[in-house]
Nucleic acid binder design. Structure first.
Lengths: 242, 242
DNA sequence: CGTCGGGTTGATAACTTTCAAATTTCGTGG
DNA sequence: CCACGAAATTTGAAAGTTATCAACCCGACG
């Protein structure tokens, strides 16, 4: 009936939705729009917040500093639902930019609330997905606080790989990755030059290769050990009480 | 009728609660307990999650790495409501330790849900406070990613000062702060030695002094400029739709 | 009186950035 | 299909920042 979106597939990997719930979820996907690279989905400081459901492409959320520097808070991939908590703010406290061409559905605060009131099980499922995003944020924090440049880099790619696998965008030995080394640098708190060195170290160490827009895991287990990657924070076991 | 808790005062600084809503909020404060230093409120990996409302004392949430290192995700002060989103997990993905002796009320998932269903305006107010906590997390991320050691240190103290002011725990020129340099180091992603050096730099620069458990702002404006501190992320203007 | 946790300082080593420049890749128009 | 320019990647050398190691100081506490 409805072409299944990446978000729907992601949720249904954990809980079975009723026909009604699926319909409400599909209804949130009206107002689908495309955003070219360079045209922000959300601008920092903008008021009248809404959330987005990503269908295609990658985007990033970022914060600008007064000195003009930009820190990337997270990358979004198809099936992500950024801005869930932002609807409770009056003003956007961070911006969102497309990394590639993006197709996304804007979800207004009122629509979201209506969906939550009408289908509480769906609400819990969506909020649980949002809680997972917060776990990602915490892990990103630890990445910046306690890991070396090469470990951070490896850890981020492992996380992205695990997320992409959930929505079927992971190949046999790696995944297509549209990020530049400058984007990686702004996310990892490193200079682009040092990201390059870290990638070389990982490549020459036989652990992973990132070239021509493709990430290939050459020795997955050794990479996991090197980055101290623990998947526990990604597998929260599905929403409770359903 | 009810002795007003720090959380109630914090919320009422932004929205007026009805008598019913105040009563429900006060009801969440049953099951008040004390936690001595060394006895964790939540242990990483523990299941059956609940949230806490802090009434007295400071605590910290942390993540443990496999190599035994610990990264502190956030500090909690009176009036904070940690674990709000954690109730949607099956397992705690981080621990919570008291920094000083702590008095806190445990709030079970069922109680929280019941309060949300019965008093939706209170729910929005509490969720909005939780959204502010997420803004703190994002700001912490930027702190680690894009600021120097001394800037990070200054920035954290400015943030803590702003939070303490909201609950009336900020004095004329600074605030009482029970953190050790080791705790600061684990939060800021620095070594304790370097925290010490950063504090000396701030002190000798005439910007702020942290000694004998008290933070004194010697030149607030210069400190704000030095740390590139922007209060926008703390003042979200109160919950919308109320 | 001795120990212990926390704070302070100096010297050295490791890591990361900055600056400058070469090389490769990619999209576009000829 | 090739040429071209812009963007992205790669490399080297020097400078700056932060960690690590090793002491020493100090006040609280048994």
């Amino acid at each position: 009936m409805f072409p299944s979106s990446p978000l729907a597939r992601k949720i249904e990997a954990f809980v079975a939705l009723s026909e009604d719930e699926s319909a409400v979820l599909a209804g949130l996907h009206q107002r689908s729009r495309c955003f070219e690279a360079g045209r922000d989905l959300v601008r920092q400081g903008q008021s009248g917040q809404s959330a987005f459901i990503l269908a295609e492409g990658w985007s990033c959320t970022y914060k600008l500093l007064r000195n003009g520097a930009r820190h990337i808070v997270d990358f979004q991939i198809p099936g992500d639902f950024p801005g869930l908590r932002g609807v409770l703010y009056r003003k956007a406290n961070h911006g969102m930019s497309p990394v590639t061409r993006v197709r996304a559905s804007e979800v207004l605060r009122e629509e979201l609330l209506a969906a939550f009131v009408g289908t509480p099980r769906l609400a819990v499922a969506i909020l649980w997905a949002g809680a997972r995003d917060e776990a990602l944020l915490v892990e990103h924090l630890v990445r910046l606080g306690k890991r070396s440049a090469a470990q951070r880099t490896a850890h981020l790619f492992l996380e992205l790989g695990a997320r992409l696998r959930l929505v079927g965008l992971h190949g046999a030995d790696g995944f297509a990755c549209p990020l530049t080394q400058y984007l990686l640098a702004d996310a990892l708190g490193l200079s682009a030059i040092h990201v390059n060195r870290s990638l070389r170290l990982l490549r020459e160490g036989g652990m992973m290769t990132f070239q021509n827009g493709y990430v290939r895991f050459d020795d997955f287990d050794r990479l996991v050990a090197f980055a101290d990657f623990d998947t526990a924070y990604l597998h929260l076991g599905g929403p409770p009480m359903i």
